[in-house]
Each structure stands twice: as structure tokens, then as C-alpha cells.
Amino acid sequence: MKKYFFYTYILFLLAGLFGCSKKDESLVFGNAAQQRALTDLKKDQLLLTSAPYGWKAVIFPGSDIGRGFFFKFNDQNQVQTYPDPSLKLISPAYGDPGISSYQLKSLQRTSLIFDTYSSLSILSDPQNGVRGSGYSSDIEFSFTSASSDTIRFTGNFNQTPMTLIKATAAEYDAYQKDGLQVFKTALINYSTSIMGKKLNLAIDATHNPECTIVTDKDNDRTFTLIYTDSKGVSQKQTTKWGPTVNSLFFQTPILYNDIVINEVFYDTAKLSMYIMWKGKRYEIVAS
């Protein structure tokens, strides 16, 4: 019996000696998954906070017209918001510019979350719009694509499309000076001035498709382009738009021949609309 105890001791000794053998495993991707996710989050946050003059934003809730916002994110997770002035009609108490918080989080995809109430929440608030579901909007968005000056998001709950476009110093200044309200008024005047007239996008002598711009005056916000394509078939493209401080930004770009139209600008001096393509300006002529 004693003999077996002896072997038991040997066994314990071996276990003790080899039990703590440690070999550092090197990770295939360099860092732990959590750290890599965090690095990505930091990168995305940097993208948002690095815009020195903030972001122009347009959002297209499921049961609402396109809305314009302006966001300026800082590295303390606070965001300054300038909302579409028409939101004050829905929520007089909360429709003012203000500061709220945001966070970035690794959910299914990296998500931007407006995590406390802001004027953006008005569109999701179940007490507004359709009772119980608001305007089918979102406060939590996944990054769908990002270039250096445009980020496209999709809402996590209602798949609301939202686009952020880097603002210039002049635009930031305009937003701070109630620019969205000024632009809204200008658009109402514009839509009065074109009443009964035909709008054509003048590209050249043979290309001048017809446009329809519906502005706030009719409480809808859409842009339509009608033209006959190269096969002689009549085409019609319609998109919702949301206001920035100087343009109507489209929910989906309109393609005309090889021209991609993302937004229609308003010229406050000439009181007319135009598009930009490859650095050149093309007028929308009212006649």
C-alpha cells in the first residue's frame, strides 16, 4: 500500500512541475477580437469627430417627408444638433437646436447611436405621428458606406436611410444662424415663383429633361426627372429629398445618362436651381 503512495507523490510532483508550463499563444490576427472591434470603433469615431465644421445630414423616415439636420460630434460623446425647423411643429418643446449624447457600439455592424433624447428622437417618439410607432424612424444607425466626405447609414430598427455630408465653414456658420429656416422660406418663395411653369434641366441642346420639384409648400418633398431614353422609352425617376442649408439632397441619386445627381442647389442671388456635375454647373430653367 505504501508503495502506491510513493507513486502518488511522484504523480503530484510531475503535475506540479509541468502543470504551470505556459506557452504564450500568438494571435492569428494580431489582437484579440474585442480589441480589433474597439480599434474600428475608435476609427469610426475619429471619422465623425474629425469633420472640423460638422456634418450636414438628411434622413428619410418610413412615414414622413425627408428631413434635414446638422450634427457636430465631439470626442466627449456629445453631439450638437440643428434640426429641420418643421420639427418644431410636431414637438414644440423639443424641436430646438441642442446638445445630446451619442455613442458608437459594435452591434451586428458598427452602429452610431443617438443615445439620449434629441430633436432626431422626435421622429421616433411613439407619441408623435402614428401612435405607437412615430414616423417609423431610427435613433440607432449602422454604417453602410463611408467616403471621406459622405457617410451613408441605415437605421437598425426601421431601416431608415440617413446620409451625412461633411460641411464647410460657411455652411456650419449658416446652420448656426438658423440657415435651415432661411432656406425653407426661400424654397417656399421659389415654389411660388415657378407655379404654372415648366422646369427643364438644361444639359445641352438635345438633353433637357423635364423636372418636377415639390417643396414644403405642398408638404411633400420630392424631385422627379422625366425624359426619353436612347431607346425612345419615356423614363421617370422620383426621389425624396431632405434639405441641407443650400440644397435639396436626394434619398437615392438620380441617374441621367452618365450624370449622377445627388442634390439640387439653390442660387439665392438668381433665385433658381442648378446641379453640379464634374465641376460644371447646369441650370434648371423655368419657362
Binding site: Q34, L38, L41, Q76, N77, Q103, L104, S106
Partner: peptide, 14 residues
């Protein structure tokens, strides 16, 4: 401990 092992979020203190 990992910086954050549940979801990994970046959030400030106020």
C-alpha cells in the same frame, strides 16, 4: 481585463 468584452462601446462620462 479586456477593455470591454461586451459589445465594445465608446461612451463618455458626464
Amino acid at each position: 481585463l479586456q477593455d470591454n468584452y461586451l459589445g465594445g462601446e465608446v461612451s463618455g462620462k458626464t
